[in-house]
Simulated scan of single mutants.
Amino acid sequence: MNKLGAIIAVAVCVLVLLNISTVFAFLFLLLKIALVVGLLALAGFLVFGFIEKPETRLPPAPTPKGEAPTEPVFEKPYFDAHEKGREGEEKVSAILQHMGWPALHNVILEDDRGLTEIDHLVKAPWGIVVIETKNYDGFISGSSTPGVWKQSFPNSSGVSYRLFMDPVHQNYRHVCAVKYLTEMENVQSVVVFAGRAYASPFVHHQVVRLKNLERVLRKRPESFAYVDKRELEKAWYILQQAYIANAGRAREHIDELRQRFS
């Protein structure tokens, strides 16, 4: 009986030890799984966390109503030397030169409303393209005021912002001036973002990123019919003559803007 009891006791001890080792093995397996998942998550953050995704980034928190100025503070590009704006225009000019399409830059036109300045005019095979270039940083979104967009920047106290004229609306004025002078209907408006700004979905669908400009220009708008070559040449000649005639009216145009924004 003593031997039988000893054998039973030894068997029980062995079973207990086996159960304990099984438990420890299971816990060790869970630890390894958790470690692998953690390393994969860290690698994913390092790889994808620094890739900018302007179109999917969430907009900043809405500005409290009390912070909005009584009237919009519009951008006045002619009153200060905007080096960044010129850099953006130079980038667009380089793309147009690479494409080999005839182009005019910084064109002042006069219509029944006065003078207006256009960043770039391009003669495409199917018509005239009017390009407005913006070289923004920060986050660009719409606002509660029609024809006004908002540029937001994070800072230590939250988010600062400024309001400026909607460049799509601004370029519509340029398109109207081109149509007024040339009497041509095939005039396309293109607003180019040449900077690093993020954009809300509302803004994103109305502008063209610099890297996509050539692809967009080479695609004829579906609503545009093919234009007669002689009509296109005539329109381009009119714009060339206006460009030459108004080259010295920059100061006059600035004075008009000062009166408009004063």
Rank of each mutant, 00 (worst) to 15 (best):
K134D: 01
W126I: 01
F202A: 15
V192N: 05
V216W: 05
K179T: 12
Y78I: 08
H174G: 03
L104Y: 09
Y180R: 04
H169Q: 10
S189K: 04
A177K: 03
I118N: 03
L181K: 01
R230Y: 01
A124E: 02
S160D: 13
P167L: 02
P59V: 04
D137F: 12
G38N: 10
Y237K: 12
P221S: 01
S141N: 05
A242E: 13
F224T: 06
G85I: 04
T22L: 09
K91F: 06
V36R: 12
I140W: 04
E89C: 05
E83S: 14
N135L: 07
E233Q: 09
S21G: 05
P60N: 02
H174E: 06
V122C: 02
L257E: 06
I118K: 00
R215M: 07
I118Y: 02
V129K: 02
K76N: 10
N155R: 03
E183T: 00
G49P: 00
I131V: 00
G158Y: 05
F153K: 02
A41L: 15
T116L: 07
I8E: 08
K134T: 05
R86I: 06
Q97C: 15
L30H: 07
V148L: 04
R173F: 03
E233A: 12
I244S: 13
G158H: 01
Q259L: 15
P125M: 05
Q259S: 14
T145E: 13
S160L: 15
Q259N: 11
T133D: 15
N212H: 12
V92R: 03
A245R: 05
R113S: 11
V130T: 11
T116D: 03
M184A: 14
G114E: 00
I95P: 01
A235W: 03
Q151I: 09
T70K: 14
A225D: 14
K134G: 00
E233S: 15
S157K: 11
V159D: 07
P62G: 08
Y226T: 11
M99L: 15
K32R: 13
Q206G: 12
F26V: 09
F48R: 08
N135G: 07
A247R: 08
P69T: 10
F79L: 11
S152A: 08
I140A: 02
F224R: 04
Q241A: 08
L15K: 09
H120Y: 03
Y237P: 06
H204L: 08
A94G: 03
L163W: 15
A68E: 14
N135I: 02
H253D: 06
R209S: 01
A242V: 03
